[in-house]
């Protein structure tokens, strides 16, 4: 098992013990929440992993490299920003997509922009939650304040990678 797994599992135990010590049903409530969530997501995660595995074999890598690869440069960052904003669905859809793009030659800054845009503009969330609960004025102001953030984060990633010579194999 790798370090990240060990840390996550250790943290789960730490919080579990903390909840258990409270002795007020917190522990049981936490377990119930986790089980419910696991039941709801794990079957889909397993399938999503298979989809990723298969797609990683058939996605045309030249296409990914041209549009989102290192050669694409700032254009890759812009394309990533737009594509991420248009990607519907929750993390169970987005992360496998990003994973496949990563494995098939997309550059990291473009993916950073992709994830930022998806996180910020996910339109399913805007339609289902933000508009009904917060109204048009809030959504308008928020969108206007966030427009430049996805390309900005990709650009920053590029700068950090250049300055500190960070490589992703």
């Amino acid at each position: 098992m790798d370090v990240a797994s060990i840390i996550i599992i250790a943290l789960a135990f730490t919080f579990g013990i903390k909840a258990y010590r409270k002795n007020d049903g917190s522990y049981e409530a936490g377990i119930t929440l986790a089980k419910k969530q696991a039941l709801a997501t794990l079957p889909k995660i397993v399938l999503a992993i298979f989809v990723s595995g298969f797609f990683s074999q058939i996605v045309p890598t030249e296409l990914v490299a041209t549009w989102l690869g290192k050669e694409a440069g700032w254009k890759g960052i812009l394309i990533g920003s737009v594509a991420g904003g248009l990607t519907p669905g929750g993390p169970i859809i987005c992360f496998p997509v990003v994973y496949i793009l990563f494995k098939t030659g997309a550059a990291v800054p473009a993916l950073v922009s992709f994830l930022a845009a998806w996180s910020i503009f996910a339109f399913h969330r805007v339609l289902a939650y933000e508009l009904p609960l917060l109204g048009v004025r809030f959504v308008g102001i928020r969108f206007a304040s966030c427009l430049i953030l996805p390309p900005l984060s990709g650009l920053l990633a590029q700068i950090i990678m250049d300055v500190f010579k960070v490589e992703f194999s």
Partner: peptide, 29 residues
Amino acid sequence: GVDAAWDMMIQVLPKIIGALFMAGFIQVL
């Protein structure tokens, strides 16, 4: 493709399961 999926599964599932329990406890705490 199956191989790639299997590798990913081994890498991903322990973390996701651990994180789900952590999230459950944090939500309560």
